[in-house]
Each structure stands twice: as structure tokens, then as C-alpha cells.
């Protein structure tokens, strides 16, 4: 499969601001890595179920019980910017 990468779109999806030079470097490196990944594509896998998890377990529920919350000061004090006990971010639009 011929590999094409719209690296600017990938960087945007990943929310990483990269310079044009950086984009070019990463694009070349990704292509190199993906060339190796093509080995994987060559392997016949018809009828093979994907494994997304090494364990054959299910659910892993917790009961609906209330536990302790953090003292807001313990995390707000580490935030880059806060106002009135809330996290502050720049304008969204």
C-alpha cells in the first residue's frame, strides 16, 4: 500500500504546533517507520480476530459508592492559571 501522509492535518489532529521544517522532518521519519509497518500488512490475517487486550476478562466493575474527592487546593495550586477555584483558559473562538 503506497503511504501518504498529510502531516499538517495529523499534527493539527494531535494539537501539536510544528514549524514547516519540523513537519517535513517528521513526515520523512514517519514514512520510514511506516515502510517497516508494511511488513505487517503483508501478513495474511484473514479470519484472524484482533486482540486489543491481553486479558480474557470482562467488566471489571466497581460498586456505585461514593469515595473521597481531592482537596481542590491540591490540584488548583498546580494549574497554570485559575480564577475563582476554576481553571482558566484563553478565549475558545
Amino acid at each position: 500500500m503506497p503511504v501518504e501522509i498529510d502531516i499538517a492535518r495529523v499534527a493539527h489532529l494531535a494539537r501539536i504546533a510544528l514549524t514547516p521544517e519540523e513537519l517535513e522532518t517528521y513526515s520523512a521519519q514517519l514514512l520510514d517507520i511506516l515502510e517497516h509497518a508494511e511488513r505487517v500488512q503483508a501478513l495474511p490475517t484473514e479470519g484472524v480476530e484482533p486482540t486489543s487486550h491481553p486479558l480474557a476478562m470482562v467488566n471489571g466493575f466497581r460498586p456505585d459508592e461514593i469515595g473521597p474527592c481531592l482537596d481542590p487546593e491540591s490540584f488548583l495550586s498546580q494549574a497554570p492559571d485559575t480564577e475563582d477555584s476554576r481553571f482558566r483558559v484563553p478565549r475558545i473562538l
Binding site: N59, G60, F61, R62, P63, D64, E65, I66, G67, P68, C69, L70, P72, F75, L76, D84, S85, R86, F87
Partner: peptide
């Protein structure tokens, strides 16, 4: 296990999981 019933005080019903602090993991409520 943070409560779903919280008052008006912001960020008082939070823990590493619902704040997505590094290392925290989700465990589903049955």
C-alpha cells in the same frame, strides 16, 4: 467514586480520574 450530586462550589467533586491527572484510570460503575 466522586459524587454526581454536588453543590455550587466548583471543582469540589473531583479526583485524579475525573480530572484526568497523569496516571489515573477509569473503573466503570456497575
Amino acid at each position: 467514586s466522586c459524587p454526581t450530586d454536588f453543590g455550587d462550589e466548583p471543582n469540589t467533586a473531583c479526583c485524579p480520574v475525573c480530572l484526568a491527572l497523569p496516571g489515573a484510570l477509569p473503573v466503570p460503575n456497575e
